[in-house]
């Protein structure tokens, strides 16, 4: 069995949306290298419970880096120090005995805190609602091979479609912009023949919904790309802007 070591933690505690929050210190001396970061928090919660305290609330579900539920700001970096890795897939072998780690929620005006590390990311759903789909009714689809799609186009579409909607891009952005999230969905659908007919309408609707939700503008810091656990390229944003300019400013919305 792997050796146990000690980690010091400063964790954001906040009782509710309108309550003040603060960082609280904890020490855990039963950490081992094979634990995931969230398993370390589970063990800490069991310890807090045993001592009669209130466990720390944080979002998680699949714990294999695909559902997008987990969303921790770890030492000021969305999802922690390891590139292309969600909070749930970060393992304690990346830390040393005696390290101090600060854990906060993904902060943004459009992501209000619900409790402790749990935030409300429903603004993302509303951006998809605005146009992040192909308007096809069940049952009306042609044969799947009737429209060939260049392999490279399909592969690139996939690269953008791999977004898990975790919100790291927003949390990392100095402007709290959701441009990478929005741009990724647009870059996925807009480049496929199936998505082409609604390209302009979709782009305008999603960009405008993003603004309405209170996300900031993109100033090309590229912090989003650096923290994205799926490695989505910031080219999505350039593409979104081009399409938006063409559609909205040229008054060519149809």
């Amino acid at each position: 069995m792997a050796e146990e070591f000690t980690i010091n933690l400063k964790i954001w505690r906040q009782a509710g949306p309108d309550q003040p929050g603060k960082l609280v210190d904890y020490t855990l001396d039963t950490v081992n290298e094979h634990m995931s970061f969230l398993e370390m928090l589970d063990v800490l919660n069991e310890k807090i419970l045993n001592e009669g305290g209130d466990p720390i609330e944080f979002d998680y579900d699949c714990r294999e880096g695909i559902c997008g539920s987990c969303d921790l700001m770890i030492d000021g970096r969305a999802h922690g120090p390891k590139a292309m890795t969600c909070s749930c897939q970060l393992h304690m072998r990346n830390y040393n005995d005696g390290d101090t780690i600060t854990v906060e929620p993904f902060r943004a005006r459009a992501f209000p805190v619900i409790k402790d590390l749990v935030v409300d990311r429903s603004a993302f759903d509303r951006i998809i609602e605005a146009g992040g789909y192909v308007s096809i009714k069940t049952g009306s689809a042609p044969d799947a091979n009737s429209i060939p799609v260049d392999k490279q186009v399909a592969d690139t579409a996939f690269d953008y479609a791999t977004c898990i909607g975790c919100g790291a891009c927003v949390a990392a952005c100095p402007n709290s912009s959701a441009s990478l999230f929005t741009g990724a969905k647009l870059a996925h659908l807009n480049r496929l023949p199936q998505g082409e007919p609604e390209r302009k309408k979709r782009t305008v609707a999603m960009v405008e919904q993003m603004e309405e939700e209170g996300f900031g503008d993109c100033s090309n810091f590229a912090e989003c790309e650096a923290v994205c656990p799926k490695g989505i390229s910031i080219s999505a944003i350039a593409e979104m802007r081009r399409n938006y300019m063409k559609a909205a400013l040229a008054g060519d919305e149809a």
Partner: peptide, 22 residues
């Protein structure tokens, strides 16, 4: 078979061959 048709029409980026087919 209808499921595959439906998903492709929605823009699900399934793996493709170089000829552009699934």
């Amino acid at each position: 078979n209808e499921i595959i048709d439906q998903a492709v029409a929605q823009g699900v980026p399934f793996a493709r061959e170089y000829g552009g087919l699934l």
